[in-house]
Amino acid sequence: MGTLRRSQQGTVDAAGAAVRQGLTGDGSRVEPIKGYIFVGFLVLSIVLGIAMLLTLVVDSIIEGAPFLRWNPLVTGVPSSIPSEAGLWVAIVGTFWVIGLMIITVVPLAVGAAIYLEEYADGDRWYNRAIELNIQNLAAVPSIVFGILGLGMIVRGGLSLGPVVYAGSLTLALLVLPTVILASREALRAVPPSHRLGAMALGSTKWQAIWRNVLPAAIPGIATGSILATARAIGETAPLLLIGATVFITFTPEGPLSEGYTTLPVQIFSWATRPQEEFRTLSAASIVVLLAVLLIINAFAIWIRNHYTKKQQA
Protein backbone atom coordinates (compact mmCIF):
# COMPACT_ATOMS: atom_id res chain seq x y z
CA MET A 1 0.00 0.00 0.00
CA GLY A 2 2.74 2.37 1.06
CA THR A 3 4.78 1.77 -2.05
CA LEU A 4 1.75 2.22 -4.21
CA ARG A 5 0.98 5.53 -2.59
CA ARG A 6 4.57 6.66 -3.04
CA SER A 7 4.58 5.77 -6.68
CA GLN A 8 1.28 7.57 -7.14
CA GLN A 9 2.80 10.56 -5.41
CA GLY A 10 5.65 10.41 -7.89
CA THR A 11 3.21 10.45 -10.83
CA VAL A 12 1.35 13.40 -9.37
CA ASP A 13 4.60 15.30 -8.93
CA ALA A 14 5.58 14.58 -12.51
CA ALA A 15 2.20 15.74 -13.75
CA GLY A 16 2.48 18.88 -11.64
CA ALA A 17 5.89 19.63 -13.10
CA ALA A 18 4.51 19.23 -16.59
CA VAL A 19 1.67 21.62 -15.82
CA ARG A 20 4.01 24.19 -14.32
CA GLN A 21 6.25 23.92 -17.31
CA GLY A 22 3.27 24.39 -19.60
CA LEU A 23 2.29 27.53 -17.70
CA THR A 24 5.67 29.15 -18.09
CA GLY A 25 5.23 28.40 -21.77
CA ASP A 26 8.67 27.83 -23.20
CA GLY A 27 7.03 25.73 -25.91
CA SER A 28 5.95 26.98 -29.28
CA ARG A 29 5.10 30.67 -29.61
CA VAL A 30 3.29 30.26 -32.90
CA GLU A 31 -0.27 30.60 -31.62
CA PRO A 32 0.19 33.97 -29.83
CA ILE A 33 1.96 35.40 -32.89
CA LYS A 34 -0.93 34.31 -35.09
CA GLY A 35 -3.22 36.13 -32.70
CA TYR A 36 -1.21 39.37 -32.95
CA ILE A 37 -1.15 39.16 -36.73
CA PHE A 38 -4.92 38.71 -36.80
CA VAL A 39 -5.57 41.67 -34.50
CA GLY A 40 -3.09 43.70 -36.53
CA PHE A 41 -5.04 42.93 -39.68
CA LEU A 42 -8.30 43.97 -38.02
CA VAL A 43 -6.82 47.26 -36.86
CA LEU A 44 -5.38 47.88 -40.34
CA SER A 45 -8.82 47.35 -41.89
CA ILE A 46 -10.48 49.92 -39.72
CA VAL A 47 -7.59 52.39 -40.03
CA LEU A 48 -7.77 52.15 -43.83
CA GLY A 49 -11.52 52.83 -43.81
CA ILE A 50 -11.20 55.84 -41.55
CA ALA A 51 -8.14 57.12 -43.41
CA MET A 52 -10.05 57.16 -46.70
CA LEU A 53 -12.93 59.07 -45.18
CA LEU A 54 -10.53 61.56 -43.56
CA THR A 55 -8.69 62.01 -46.85
CA LEU A 56 -11.95 62.79 -48.60
CA VAL A 57 -13.07 65.27 -45.96
CA VAL A 58 -9.69 66.99 -45.60
CA ASP A 59 -9.16 67.11 -49.36
CA SER A 60 -12.62 68.59 -49.93
CA ILE A 61 -12.11 71.16 -47.18
CA ILE A 62 -8.71 72.23 -48.53
CA GLU A 63 -9.85 72.34 -52.12
CA GLY A 64 -13.15 74.03 -51.39
CA ALA A 65 -11.72 76.42 -48.78
CA PRO A 66 -12.15 79.57 -50.89
CA PHE A 67 -15.90 79.00 -51.05
CA LEU A 68 -16.51 77.52 -47.59
CA ARG A 69 -18.61 80.35 -46.23
CA TRP A 70 -22.11 80.25 -44.78
CA ASN A 71 -23.18 82.96 -47.20
CA PRO A 72 -23.62 82.37 -50.09
CA LEU A 73 -22.58 78.66 -50.10
CA VAL A 74 -25.41 77.51 -47.81
CA THR A 75 -27.94 80.31 -48.11
CA GLY A 76 -27.52 81.28 -51.74
CA VAL A 77 -29.14 79.97 -54.91
CA PRO A 78 -27.35 78.65 -58.02
CA SER A 79 -25.71 81.28 -60.11
CA SER A 80 -23.51 81.38 -63.17
CA ILE A 81 -20.94 83.25 -61.09
CA PRO A 82 -19.27 80.64 -58.84
CA SER A 83 -18.52 83.04 -56.00
CA GLU A 84 -22.21 83.93 -55.72
CA ALA A 85 -23.64 80.43 -56.15
CA GLY A 86 -25.22 78.65 -53.18
CA LEU A 87 -26.85 75.37 -52.23
CA TRP A 88 -30.01 76.51 -50.48
CA VAL A 89 -32.32 75.15 -53.20
CA ALA A 90 -30.49 71.82 -53.21
CA ILE A 91 -30.51 71.53 -49.41
CA VAL A 92 -34.24 72.18 -49.21
CA GLY A 93 -34.79 69.83 -52.16
CA THR A 94 -32.80 67.09 -50.42
CA PHE A 95 -34.85 67.40 -47.25
CA TRP A 96 -38.09 67.28 -49.26
CA VAL A 97 -37.09 64.26 -51.35
CA ILE A 98 -35.56 62.29 -48.49
CA GLY A 99 -38.27 63.17 -45.98
CA LEU A 100 -41.06 62.05 -48.30
CA MET A 101 -39.05 58.96 -49.19
CA ILE A 102 -38.77 57.92 -45.52
CA ILE A 103 -42.49 58.46 -44.95
CA THR A 104 -43.20 56.28 -47.98
CA VAL A 105 -40.66 53.51 -47.58
CA VAL A 106 -40.80 52.71 -43.86
CA PRO A 107 -44.47 51.61 -43.66
CA LEU A 108 -44.13 49.61 -46.88
CA ALA A 109 -40.91 47.91 -45.81
CA VAL A 110 -42.10 47.15 -42.28
CA GLY A 111 -45.35 45.74 -43.66
CA ALA A 112 -43.50 43.49 -46.07
CA ALA A 113 -41.08 42.42 -43.35
CA ILE A 114 -43.90 41.57 -40.92
CA TYR A 115 -45.62 39.49 -43.57
CA LEU A 116 -42.48 37.60 -44.50
CA GLU A 117 -41.25 37.11 -40.95
CA GLU A 118 -44.47 36.50 -39.00
CA TYR A 119 -47.10 35.27 -41.43
CA ALA A 120 -45.52 33.79 -44.54
CA ASP A 121 -45.15 30.04 -44.64
CA GLY A 122 -41.49 29.62 -45.59
CA ASP A 123 -42.20 26.22 -47.11
CA ARG A 124 -44.35 27.67 -49.89
CA TRP A 125 -42.50 28.23 -53.14
CA TYR A 126 -44.00 31.69 -53.74
CA ASN A 127 -42.82 32.97 -50.38
CA ARG A 128 -39.34 31.66 -51.04
CA ALA A 129 -39.45 33.29 -54.49
CA ILE A 130 -40.40 36.63 -52.91
CA GLU A 131 -37.54 36.36 -50.43
CA LEU A 132 -35.00 35.53 -53.11
CA ASN A 133 -36.13 38.38 -55.32
CA ILE A 134 -35.99 40.92 -52.52
CA GLN A 135 -32.37 39.94 -51.95
CA ASN A 136 -31.70 40.28 -55.68
CA LEU A 137 -33.45 43.65 -55.83
CA ALA A 138 -31.12 44.98 -53.15
CA ALA A 139 -28.24 44.45 -55.58
CA VAL A 140 -29.83 46.09 -58.64
CA PRO A 141 -27.91 49.21 -59.82
CA SER A 142 -29.65 52.48 -59.04
CA ILE A 143 -29.81 53.60 -62.66
CA VAL A 144 -32.20 50.72 -63.32
CA PHE A 145 -34.54 52.13 -60.69
CA GLY A 146 -34.14 55.51 -62.43
CA ILE A 147 -35.38 53.97 -65.67
CA LEU A 148 -38.26 52.33 -63.80
CA GLY A 149 -39.11 55.66 -62.16
CA LEU A 150 -39.06 57.43 -65.49
CA GLY A 151 -41.24 54.83 -67.18
CA MET A 152 -43.71 54.15 -64.37
CA ILE A 153 -43.79 57.18 -62.08
CA VAL A 154 -42.87 60.27 -64.08
CA ARG A 155 -44.55 59.02 -67.24
CA GLY A 156 -46.52 55.86 -67.89
CA GLY A 157 -48.52 54.39 -65.01
CA LEU A 158 -48.56 57.18 -62.46
CA SER A 159 -47.63 60.05 -64.80
CA LEU A 160 -46.75 62.35 -61.92
CA GLY A 161 -44.40 64.41 -64.07
CA PRO A 162 -40.95 65.51 -62.88
CA VAL A 163 -42.15 66.44 -59.40
CA VAL A 164 -40.53 66.14 -55.97
CA TYR A 165 -42.59 63.11 -54.97
CA ALA A 166 -41.60 61.25 -58.14
CA GLY A 167 -38.01 61.53 -56.92
CA SER A 168 -39.02 60.32 -53.45
CA LEU A 169 -40.92 57.36 -54.87
CA THR A 170 -38.06 56.32 -57.11
CA LEU A 171 -35.58 56.46 -54.24
CA ALA A 172 -38.10 54.62 -52.05
CA LEU A 173 -38.18 51.76 -54.55
CA LEU A 174 -34.40 51.82 -54.59
CA VAL A 175 -33.95 51.42 -50.84
CA LEU A 176 -37.08 49.32 -50.20
CA PRO A 177 -35.29 45.94 -50.39
CA THR A 178 -32.57 47.10 -47.99
CA VAL A 179 -35.07 48.35 -45.44
CA ILE A 180 -37.15 45.16 -45.77
CA LEU A 181 -34.10 43.00 -45.12
CA ALA A 182 -33.03 45.11 -42.13
CA SER A 183 -36.56 45.10 -40.70
CA ARG A 184 -36.77 41.33 -41.02
CA GLU A 185 -33.50 40.97 -39.14
CA ALA A 186 -34.87 43.26 -36.42
CA LEU A 187 -38.11 41.26 -36.13
CA ARG A 188 -36.23 37.98 -36.05
CA ALA A 189 -34.07 39.28 -33.20
CA VAL A 190 -37.15 39.71 -30.98
CA PRO A 191 -37.24 36.59 -28.78
CA PRO A 192 -40.12 34.18 -29.51
CA SER A 193 -41.04 34.46 -25.83
CA HIS A 194 -42.42 37.94 -26.53
CA ARG A 195 -44.90 36.50 -29.01
CA LEU A 196 -45.77 33.44 -26.91
CA GLY A 197 -46.05 35.51 -23.75
CA ALA A 198 -48.45 37.93 -25.39
CA MET A 199 -50.55 35.19 -26.95
CA ALA A 200 -50.68 33.27 -23.67
CA LEU A 201 -52.35 36.37 -22.24
CA GLY A 202 -55.13 36.12 -24.78
CA SER A 203 -53.84 38.55 -27.39
CA THR A 204 -54.41 37.81 -31.04
CA LYS A 205 -51.42 37.26 -33.27
CA TRP A 206 -51.79 40.75 -34.68
CA GLN A 207 -51.95 42.31 -31.21
CA ALA A 208 -48.85 40.41 -30.15
CA ILE A 209 -46.99 41.74 -33.17
CA TRP A 210 -48.30 45.29 -33.03
CA ARG A 211 -48.00 45.85 -29.29
CA ASN A 212 -45.04 43.69 -28.40
CA VAL A 213 -42.86 42.56 -31.26
CA LEU A 214 -42.85 45.74 -33.31
CA PRO A 215 -41.92 48.13 -30.47
CA ALA A 216 -39.04 45.81 -29.54
CA ALA A 217 -37.89 45.80 -33.17
CA ILE A 218 -38.00 49.58 -33.67
CA PRO A 219 -34.33 50.22 -32.86
CA GLY A 220 -33.26 47.63 -35.44
CA ILE A 221 -35.70 48.93 -38.03
CA ALA A 222 -34.45 52.45 -37.38
CA THR A 223 -30.85 51.39 -37.92
CA GLY A 224 -31.75 49.85 -41.27
CA SER A 225 -33.70 52.95 -42.26
CA ILE A 226 -30.76 55.19 -41.30
CA LEU A 227 -28.40 53.23 -43.54
CA ALA A 228 -30.93 53.31 -46.38
CA THR A 229 -31.43 57.04 -45.96
CA ALA A 230 -27.70 57.62 -46.08
CA ARG A 231 -27.56 55.73 -49.35
CA ALA A 232 -30.51 57.62 -50.81
CA ILE A 233 -29.08 61.03 -49.89
CA GLY A 234 -26.06 60.31 -52.03
CA GLU A 235 -27.97 59.00 -55.07
CA THR A 236 -27.51 61.04 -58.23
CA ALA A 237 -28.04 58.90 -61.30
CA PRO A 238 -31.74 57.96 -60.93
CA LEU A 239 -32.67 61.54 -60.03
CA LEU A 240 -30.91 62.95 -63.08
CA LEU A 241 -32.83 60.49 -65.18
CA ILE A 242 -36.25 61.33 -63.78
CA GLY A 243 -35.96 65.08 -64.05
CA ALA A 244 -34.13 66.61 -61.12
CA THR A 245 -33.10 70.00 -62.46
CA VAL A 246 -29.53 71.20 -62.38
CA PHE A 247 -30.18 74.91 -62.49
CA ILE A 248 -33.10 76.15 -60.49
CA THR A 249 -33.40 79.20 -58.27
CA PHE A 250 -36.53 78.50 -56.25
CA THR A 251 -37.26 75.90 -53.55
CA PRO A 252 -40.05 73.32 -53.97
CA GLU A 253 -43.42 74.28 -52.52
CA GLY A 254 -44.81 70.81 -51.95
CA PRO A 255 -44.62 67.15 -52.87
CA LEU A 256 -46.18 67.74 -56.29
CA SER A 257 -44.35 70.91 -57.27
CA GLU A 258 -42.28 70.60 -60.40
CA GLY A 259 -38.63 71.56 -60.48
CA TYR A 260 -36.32 70.44 -57.69
CA THR A 261 -32.74 69.51 -57.20
CA THR A 262 -30.76 67.71 -54.53
CA LEU A 263 -27.24 68.13 -53.20
CA PRO A 264 -25.53 65.32 -55.15
CA VAL A 265 -27.24 66.41 -58.36
CA GLN A 266 -26.04 69.97 -57.82
CA ILE A 267 -22.52 68.76 -57.02
CA PHE A 268 -22.50 66.58 -60.12
CA SER A 269 -23.56 69.48 -62.29
CA TRP A 270 -20.90 71.81 -60.91
CA ALA A 271 -18.16 69.20 -61.01
CA THR A 272 -18.75 68.65 -64.72
CA ARG A 273 -18.44 72.35 -65.61
CA PRO A 274 -15.24 73.33 -67.43
CA GLN A 275 -14.43 76.29 -65.14
CA GLU A 276 -11.94 75.62 -62.35
CA GLU A 277 -13.99 77.70 -59.84
CA PHE A 278 -17.02 75.46 -60.23
CA ARG A 279 -14.94 72.43 -59.35
CA THR A 280 -13.74 74.26 -56.26
CA LEU A 281 -17.36 75.05 -55.52
CA SER A 282 -18.31 71.39 -55.84
CA ALA A 283 -15.57 70.44 -53.37
CA ALA A 284 -17.04 72.90 -50.90
CA SER A 285 -20.48 71.46 -51.60
CA ILE A 286 -19.29 67.98 -50.70
CA VAL A 287 -18.50 69.30 -47.22
CA VAL A 288 -22.05 70.65 -46.99
CA LEU A 289 -23.47 67.32 -48.21
CA LEU A 290 -21.53 65.45 -45.54
CA ALA A 291 -22.78 67.90 -42.92
CA VAL A 292 -26.40 67.38 -44.04
CA LEU A 293 -25.88 63.60 -43.95
CA LEU A 294 -24.50 63.91 -40.45
CA ILE A 295 -27.47 66.01 -39.29
CA ILE A 296 -30.06 63.61 -40.70
CA ASN A 297 -28.28 60.56 -39.28
CA ALA A 298 -27.86 62.21 -35.89
CA PHE A 299 -31.58 62.91 -35.80
CA ALA A 300 -32.41 59.30 -36.75
CA ILE A 301 -30.03 57.91 -34.14
CA TRP A 302 -31.55 60.21 -31.53
CA ILE A 303 -34.99 58.77 -32.34
CA ARG A 304 -33.65 55.23 -32.12
CA ASN A 305 -31.95 55.81 -28.78
CA HIS A 306 -35.07 57.44 -27.44
CA TYR A 307 -37.01 54.23 -28.17
CA THR A 308 -34.30 51.93 -26.87
CA LYS A 309 -34.13 53.86 -23.62
CA LYS A 310 -37.89 53.80 -23.19
CA GLN A 311 -37.77 50.02 -23.23
CA GLN A 312 -34.82 49.53 -20.95
CA ALA A 313 -34.82 52.40 -18.48
Binding site: H194, G202, P215
Partner: peptide, 17 residues
Protein backbone atom coordinates in the same frame (compact mmCIF):
# COMPACT_ATOMS: atom_id res chain seq x y z
CA UNK B 1 -40.30 36.67 -20.16
CA UNK B 2 -41.29 40.16 -19.06
CA UNK B 3 -42.00 42.42 -22.00
CA UNK B 4 -39.58 45.34 -22.51
CA UNK B 5 -42.12 47.70 -21.01
CA UNK B 6 -42.76 49.18 -17.59
CA UNK B 7 -43.88 46.95 -14.73
CA UNK B 8 -47.30 48.60 -14.92
CA UNK B 9 -47.64 48.06 -18.67
CA UNK B 10 -46.61 44.42 -18.31
CA UNK B 11 -49.52 43.74 -15.96
CA UNK B 12 -51.90 45.88 -18.00
CA UNK B 13 -51.03 44.08 -21.23
CA UNK B 14 -53.60 41.31 -20.90
CA UNK B 15 -56.57 43.46 -19.88
CA UNK B 16 -55.69 45.95 -22.62
CA UNK B 17 -55.51 43.46 -25.48
Amino acid sequence: NPFPKSIYDNIAFGPRV
